[in-house]
Design a protein around this nucleic acid. Structure first.
Lengths: 69, 69
DNA sequence: CTAAAATTACTGCCCTAACAGTAATATTTA
DNA sequence: TAAATATTACTGTTAGGGCAGTAATTTTAG
């Protein structure tokens, strides 16, 4: 599917936002362990936690199919 | 963020693929209850389970930020 | 180099997502 | 219409994600 390294992508954006993992976790309202897991590409994280992180970093998520392309 | 109704979006694609929830669940390797939850927009589902469903339906996920736009 | 900060890693507990089974509705088909 | 199928809903059990706390390692700042 998307072989993008989402963890690295998020980490990069966090750095550019000048946030530590703990700060990002607090802003997203989740635990620091979860932020760490997400940046480590742990896919078993809950979708809402991932969304919370993306929202803080102003990253939008899009879904595309051959139908909607 | 994306105020798309992801559940309805997935359901629509499942219908177009002519799959029942149970068939989709089996193809994705997850339980039928989880498919039901996803179509009901339960955001606390695990990201990997959502990805499995998207993959079966040939839906790609993209992440966009003002930086990568 | 040294000190401070951040990241990575591990632990144990709690909570709940995931699941199969079942049943009640809803929808589709004959 | 009735029968078959699919969806929605609920339940009890189980596996593991989430979390704070802690500590070790790495990175950054002075």
């Amino acid at each position: 599917m998307n072989d993008l390294d989402l963890g690295a992508f998020i980490k990069d954006h966090r750095k550019k936002a000048d946030l530590t993992q703990l700060q990002l976790a607090d802003l997203a309202g989740i635990g620091k362990t979860t932020v760490f897991d997400i940046e480590k590409n742990k896919e078993t994280v809950r979708f809402n936690n991932l969304l919370a992180v993306l929202q803080v970093l102003n990253i939008k998520i899009e879904f595309k199919s051959p139908l909607t392309k």
